[in-house]
Design a protein around this nucleic acid. Structure first.
Lengths: 339, 339
DNA sequence: CTGAAAGCGCTTACAG
DNA sequence: CTGAAAGCGCTTACAG
């Protein structure tokens, strides 16, 4: 493989001059020399070595995508469609700006910092922060710009992008209320341990409160694990004397699970239970009836995070910002109007 | 950040000695010295710079995941759940072996080779090879070990891992035949341009042939694009005088789309049409009735690819191998027994 | 078991 | 507009 030295020799110039061409330093190389050098580079398929460049610049053009992997996040969260979308967009947007994306699962803040040092990553974007102490520590210790998705610690200087989770929960519940429902439960993945799910819950409670209602304890399901969890919720619901007429779900898959078990028991959605999901994911459109769901703008979210990252890389002052993106309700077929 | 020089000075040894400790070179450093050096490294959270190491070794411990991005693969294929799983497993398995995963979308073979040179990647795994000339060129030009998923060129020396696609198509069709179906169509994503889909089609045709049947042209749908494509197939089906009693689909989402439109028209699965999907993906379990589908062992597939990669990295002779993994049929609720 | 020298491929900072 | 020198953080190959 050709090196800058060989290119320089063949062009009869110093390595410096080639370097100036590579880095597009203006007014340093005469047009003719530049053209000649570029042709020689083309011919040899010359590409500068990132190892050598980053050794000097202390910057690698690598952005790490941090995927937490601990008790709270046992399997790689990449496995959810939402994550796949976000990561795919990150890759596309960052590459367009000349950055490379490295996938980094990690178990402790220390691990993430080690990766930063090992590679001199220009920045890191953390997905699915879940467990507070570890993330708190990571935010404090990170040695390069860090953008955190869906989590913000108010006591820390940090960069984060999230969505109006509270509004999402609120919109879901209010829609049901407007359609005449008064007995509305909620099935959530982790009110206890996840701030974002808690906010969805609070939005739900707020909407109920506007109608003078309070959440009923026996209709609050926490720790519901995706589709299988939804099925279990449905079973409990079906065993109750008094059942809610509608359920807000913090994830589409939970709603799909409830729907499945109801249908298997010969009951119908939305006649026997109305359902609102969250995320507007593929499954929400695949089931029959299609799910009414809270939509978040995933592409926009990825773009926002990338913009933050790029700004943070160029501006060392930019280390404290929080963007919260809007959500909206997609009305489909899973909510019945009550007389 | 500490460098090897500072560690060496603090320990009162040469940089060489520290290097030997870092690289676990046996019998080169006395146990006491090693212990002292390790403690100092700990204290400083010292991590060797990959840039410096790979500058010398011409190896970065980076494995690139190649994601083709051209006319045939317009959006990032990462967006499919299947891809998300595979990539998540790659990351987990490779990290455990000390490798780093870089996501690399690319449009031309040249781009991929440039990335290899830029980073001195130790290896690359290509997903979703679709368009022949580009992949053919990539296989020929790759400058580091390359493992290709789901595609093999018999005229080239290459490493690939795939599944028994033909058997998958065969199992799907044979099951329908055994259940008494004789009018069996197929909805495929790309028989024309994808070898693997073509093989699924051929398996389907083979099963029909065993029963003295031939595929009927008007029941062969090609270029079916996921869920929306399935819906369109259903519409065409519903407009036919003579309709198939069953459809083999090369993707679960296609089957889900057909199911959706049939149900919307008041028809039932499997009474009005039996459906077999492919992939055993989340949607196949979410719909009602649940889909009978061809299952592939994704985890095993990822493991196989990683093993191939690791072997290729250590053994320069190992450049030509092909692994084909088994599939099986998961029988659920979308196939009716015909009298 | 330890160390001094040379060099990986590039850029920074300076002199012309 | 061009170039010679020094150095980024590490390892290889050798001498002791």
């Amino acid at each position: 493989m050709a090196t800058i030295r060989e290119i320089a020799e063949e062009a009869g110039v110093s390595r410096m001059t080639v370097s100036n061409v590579i880095n597009n330093v203006k007014g340093k190389v005469s047009p003719e020399t530049e053209k000649r050098i570029r042709e020689i580079m083309e011919k040899h398929h010359y590409v500068p070595s990132m190892a050598a460049r980053s050794l000097i610049s202390k910057s690698s053009h690598i952005i790490g995508i941090l995927l937490p992997q601990w008790a709270g996040n046992p399997n790689s969260m990449l496995l959810t469609p939402y994550a796949a979308y976000v990561v795919a967009y990150f890759e596309e947007l960052l590459r367009a700006k000349g950055y490379y994306v490295m996938l980094c699962s990690f178990a402790k803040a220390e691990d993430a910092v080690m990766i930063q040092r090992t590679w001199h990553t220009d920045g890191m974007i953390e997905m699915f922060p879940h467990d507070d102490p570890i993330n708190h520590e990571l935010v404090e210790r990170s040695e390069c710009p860090l953008v955190v998705m869906d989590r913000h610690f108010d006591d820390l200087q940090m960069l984060s992008v999230g969505i109006e989770d509270r509004k999402g929960g609120y919109l879901a519940a209010r829609h049901l209320l407007e359609e005449g429902h008064r007995q509305i439960g909620i099935a959530a993945s982790s009110i206890e341990s996840s701030q974002l799910i808690r906010e969805r819950y609070e939005g739900y409670a707020e909407a109920l409160a506007e109608y003078g209602l309070e959440p009923r304890k026996e209709w609050i399901f926490d720790g519901t694990d995706r589709h299988a969890g939804g099925i279990r919720v449905a079973e409990q619901l079906l065993g109750m004397r008094e059942r809610p007429t509608a359920m807000v779900c913090t994830e589409d898959l939970i709603a799909c699970g409830i729907m499945k078990r109801y249908q298997e028991r010969g009951l119908n959605v939305p006649q026997d239970i109305s359902l609102v999901g969250f995320d507007n994911s593929e499954p929400s459109r695949v089931v029959t009836p299609m799910l009414t769901t809270v939509n978040q703008f995933i592409r926009k979210k990825a773009e926002t995070a990338v913009e933050m990252m790029l700004r943070a890389i160029t501006d060392p002052e930019y280390r404290n910002d929080r963007k919260t993106l809007d959500v909206d309700l997609v009305k489909r077929e899973s909510v019945a109007r009550l007389a």
